[in-house]
Amino acid sequence: MIDKRKYSLAEALEGISDGAVVMIGGFGAVGQPDALVDALAEIGPRDLTVIANNAGWSRETGIPRLMDLGLVRKIICSFPKGSEVFKSLYLAGKIELEIVPQGTLAERIRCAGAGIPAFYTATAAGTQLEKGKETREFDGRRYVMERALPADVALIEAWAGDRWGNLSYQGSGRNFNPVMATAAKLTICQVHELLDAPLDPNAIVTPGIFVNRIVQVKADSDRLIAAQRLA
């Protein structure tokens, strides 16, 4: 029988080692698996490389909490502004930053999940972000070669899930989550509703094949509203 349900955050996060490459879903605070990230901070693996769109928004929770504890060596992201913890570490030279255009970030992750090692894109061609990368002309236009971006672990958030790991989402909460789910060796999802019954197959966005572990964490709407007010 397949049962991917876990009944504590610690059990859901078992086996993440020092030096792991960890994808973290979310755009702003929506779809960010903060409970999983905060529990990971308690466990405390070191030298992590984090792949995410943003660098978080609040010192108390999520990616800045990991960074504040000195657990993150490098972040690969598109838009780290708005994270005071990241900013002070970066300006002090205590954390590495790889800036990736948002669409290139999404496509590098998608390709990692789809078995595509590299691709060409016009994004960043002729800019300083093409430095050190192979470029090639197709039909008279310049393109940059970008490599797939896989991870050891993906921490994601969805709205509802079942024991097979099938997932559905809410509002703008999909963002990077369904893409990251495909690109890691171990995908761990926190859901607002963990159902006993199977999800309606017509409503599933992430099929369970991409998900290894699923844990229920009731959504915290006050936290999301607080993040909106800070934006």
Binding site: L97, Q102, T123
Partner: peptide, 13 residues
Amino acid sequence: MPAVGGAMDLSVG
């Protein structure tokens, strides 16, 4: 601190 977001994707696409 550099931050690019989606600007490069939008401007070529």
